[in-house]
């Protein structure tokens, strides 16, 4: 099968969906050349650097029968638009009694590893998970990126696509034939029987590398990728943990009130799952600090395969 990058897979999803649905249009502070070339500068607009306004514009256009696709670029810039995200986009469907749909795709990049310090190295998806009314995806492979993003664009709700900075250039198999990946469906990236690692985005790849190391020690690791954070595939998480009896969660975000905490609760609040657990949950997350610039510090703050291996050994030795 052909291989394309994570970034290319996202662009393919956009092009295919914009061809398919004439009510889609694209707003971002830099208009992608490939999109302008094919769809013209009416449908693919470069906006002023005014994220609040362009997010609100998406809400209003969505409520008027269109299907806007917004690229905030780095998630840092979404914070400039917080009123429109938190008070408007997330609540408007419910608050108005569901009288019209607000189909909006928000794309944004998350994560560290680029030596760009505290503001531009964030993974704040749990802040958005805490709001009712937004769906969100967090793909880890080019295949999932394309399939999920196509589903997101077709969804009738505001959905945020969190896309990993570290994975943009990573290539993977993506079929030429059209396909979609449903929201709320986790994917077992590797089957195993001793411990479940629920890993997010870039850490899926680190977890797979850790699994190879642990395999040599005789530990059979299952790697589960939730792929979408809202809706979260609670059944798949519980089923895997019931099978292995151990849960390690690997997330590039900090642990406090994070997606990792939610995933831990999903497993431990469930009576049947908890009954089968042989060890406490272990979270492998970033340190709870703003992300530092210098490589020695940044790499120390973020978790990687070594931290995951250590985390698994800890739960295996209980």
């Amino acid at each position: 099968m052909r291989k394309i990058s994570y970034a290319q897979a996202g662009m393919e999803a956009l092009v295919e969906e914009m061809r398919r649905d004439p009510t889609t249009f694209h707003l971002s502070t830099d208009a992608p050349d490939a999109l302008v070339e094919e769809f013209g500068s009416e449908r693919v607009r470069a906006t002023p650097i005014a994220e609040g306004a362009l997010t609100g514009i998406a809400v209003g256009a969505a409520g008027s029968g269109f299907r806007p696709i917004i690229n905030w670029s780095m998630v840092t810039f979404s914070f400039v638009a917080m009123d429109q995200i938190v008070n408007q986009a997330a609540k408007i469907h419910y608050m108005f009694g569901g009288q019209v749909k607000f189909p909006i795709t928000f794309r944004t990049s998350v994560g560290g590893g680029r030596r760009v310090a505290a503001q531009h190295s964030q993974s704040p998806y749990s802040m958005f998970m805490n709001l009712a009314g937004l769906k969100m995806i967090l793909p880890s492979t080019p295949y999932d990126m394309k399939g999920l993003l196509k589903t997101v664009i077709r969804d009738d709700n505001p959905v945020i696509s969190f896309e990993s900075n570290r994975l943009m250039g990573v290539a993977g198999e993506v079929p030429e034939e059209p396909y979609t990946v449903p929201l709320g469906k986790a994917d077992v990236k590797r089957e195993g029987s001793d411990v479940t690692i629920v890993a997010l985005a870039w850490l899926v790849h680190e977890a797979l590398a850790a699994a190879d190391v642990l395999d040599k020690e005789g530990v059979s690791v299952e790697v589960l990728d939730p792929r979408t954070l809202v809706p979260l595939d609670c059944d798949a998480i519980r089923a895997s943990v019931q099978k292995t009896g151990r849960l390690v969660i690997a997330d590039e975000a900090g642990p406090t009130a994070g997606a990792s905490a939610e995933i831990a609760a999903v497993a431990t609040e469930d009576v049947e799952t908890f009954a089968k657990m042989k060890a406490p949950v272990k979270r492998v997350c970033a340190l709870h600090v703003p992300i530092p610039y210098t490589p020695q510090l940044e790499d120390h703050v973020f978790p990687d395969r070594d931290n995951i291996v250590a985390g698994v050994r800890e739960v295996m030795n209980v």
Partner: peptide, 30 residues
């Protein structure tokens, strides 16, 4: 709100509605 008559809603955030209705203006232009 009553979207069926083009009333896109009262809004509890001062200035919060201005970008939203500007999006309706973009929709009208498109």
């Amino acid at each position: 709100a009553d979207f069926s008559i083009g009333m896109l809603g009262a809004n509890g955030i001062v200035a919060g509605g201005i970008p939203i209705v500007t999006g309706a203006g973009l929709a009208a232009q498109l």
